[in-house]
Design a protein around this nucleic acid. Sequence first.
DNA 1: TTGAAAGCGCTAACAA
DNA 2: TTGTTAGCGCTTTCAA
Lengths: 344, 344
Amino acid sequence: MSAITIKDIAKICNVGISTVSRAINDDPGINKNTQERILKVIEEYHYVPNNSARNLKMTESNTIALLIKGIDNQFFQGMLKIYEAELKKIEYSFLIHAIGEDQDDASVALELTKEKRLKGIIFLGGLMRYSKEKLSMLGIPYVLCTVAVNMEQPRHNSLSVSINDEKESYKAVDYLCKKGHRKIAIITGKQNDYAVGKLRLDGYKRALQDNGIQYDSGLVRYMKSDLAEYSVANGYQVTKELIESGVECTAIYAISDLMALGVYKAVFEAGKRIPEDYSVMGFDGLEVAKYFHPSLTTMEQPCSQMVKHSIELLMEAINGETEEKQMILDAALQERDSVAEIVN
Amino acid sequence: MSAITIKDIAKICNVGISTVSRAINDDPGINKNTQERILKVIEEYHYVPNNSARNLKMTESNTIALLIKGIDNQFFQGMLKIYEAELKKIEYSFLIHAIGEDQDDASVALELTKEKRLKGIIFLGGLMRYSKEKLSMLGIPYVLCTVAVNMEQPRHNSLSVSINDEKESYKAVDYLCKKGHRKIAIITGKQNDYAVGKLRLDGYKRALQDNGIQYDSGLVRYMKSDLAEYSVANGYQVTKELIESGVECTAIYAISDLMALGVYKAVFEAGKRIPEDYSVMGFDGLEVAKYFHPSLTTMEQPCSQMVKHSIELLMEAINGETEEKQMILDAALQERDSVAEIVN
DNA sequence: TTGAAAGCGCTAACAA
DNA sequence: TTGTTAGCGCTTTCAA
């Protein structure tokens, strides 16, 4: 059926195929008239070059890839937009590829690198625990952006940009403590989450300790594993159970803004007010959190910074300037209207 | 540098390259022992076949593609998830590809079809106005899902699944009217939007007319083109201006749920209540809308249905069973707590 | 059950 | 400025 190739175009135009190739690729050494004539025929016949053939032949491309694990995560959605804007500014072409939840990041990266002759890769999200060795097989520079890694065993990975989840979580909880809260519930990752959820829980614990508050496991609530991770529904369900359990608290800290909206709902349904009855805190700094009512106090991740730095780092690595660098950026506490001060 | 190929593996294993190819592709005509031996070497050397070469050589694949225009649209996000789940159930492998806002759907489709030897395509979202001719060049079946098309000039496109935006919007506004509202503001698409925004506005107008309500252009508000389309921020800004303008209304109908959250915020900031002072209605049926406070009354699009039918249609077309069918599905009014009845 | 060889459609020397 | 030609790495006949 379709199958119109460069050869056909060459025949139609009465030229060699390399001339057609030159026309397509705007090669300097081609007669502008010839080019125009060929391009017209190409247009007319709706000829589209086969990328597979192209990629196969080309010894190198100027393409970098952005690989996202967790495309359904709203936080990454936001980053994606920034990436799109920023990547347009550099001299490389780029490709955005989502990795399925069940796929292995490193394998996908490997395949894509071969297929597209990539110059570099930025990994957004995901866990990079089991694939270090495989990743080193890539043979091209890569940057891990917001990839969960346990801080206790520092990565050997060359390049990364992230926040310190433990520390930022500490800041959030410490803020709550300084506001006079002593019974602070946390809604954290799944019970078996040893990445982000664990780190943010660690920060919670340390903040409590530093503020002389006894740790109470009854105030630690885990996401439901049968509901979508970090989702509104999850925050709602967990909070509902928390409130119904009768465990007392004056503040609820959800480790994602979306879950915080679920917290809101559960609190309101219980006939309580925010922040008068319960103070609520989130994490991420999604734009939408400003529009919650009351607007959500949250730890805002430095998305723009992370995006820009990760691209910079990759560029440096491609140019052979940087081999290893771990950038840990600071999140910013956004004080809004969901947290009240408690006066004892 | 990297560049370990099938040839290398063949050499290492002391077999012909076709034997390696057979091992990789689990060809029935290969000695299991040989295969195992080769696979082990492949594993050891981290060999990954080059997809470009593969795609180039193969005369056909069993791949279908899902092309999304507007990956940042939360409504499509939700659909995406359903697609992922449903596509896993069929005997084809699939690939999800996002089309940039500035790219032409048809061109991308054409390229991808050639490159990956696609069997079929599902287009999710976008406008299919200028590319009909190009699309027919594809040479493979395709289904348009939720692709905005003007109902007045029915498409010649073979296969599509969608809702009737005009009609569903009519239902929403009619509901509001039946609840006694006579001053209903609408927040619709950009002023120059002739797709979804226009259709939903048309439905609004017709509902007003059928309910004997005078059309008032002061109640028609357009999205800001300098803010993200259908976004919370947009809904907020527009509502704020609406309220500040002093134009009276008892209900505000936003053509997306996200915008409705912006409406909430603006209403609350003005010191008003929902639904006592303003009734609010949305459109889409995002899961998150249930968690607004009060929970949002909205027109819920039949996402699961649309996904399933679009896949079915494509399968039928690939099997040559269906050549042309336009499915128009019904949306469902979700009555929740954001609309009050007005008693005169 | 295997290997040799012919391309898939393109780019990039190299000649002309 | 152009055409000829040799592969890129793989799958797939066709013989062996």
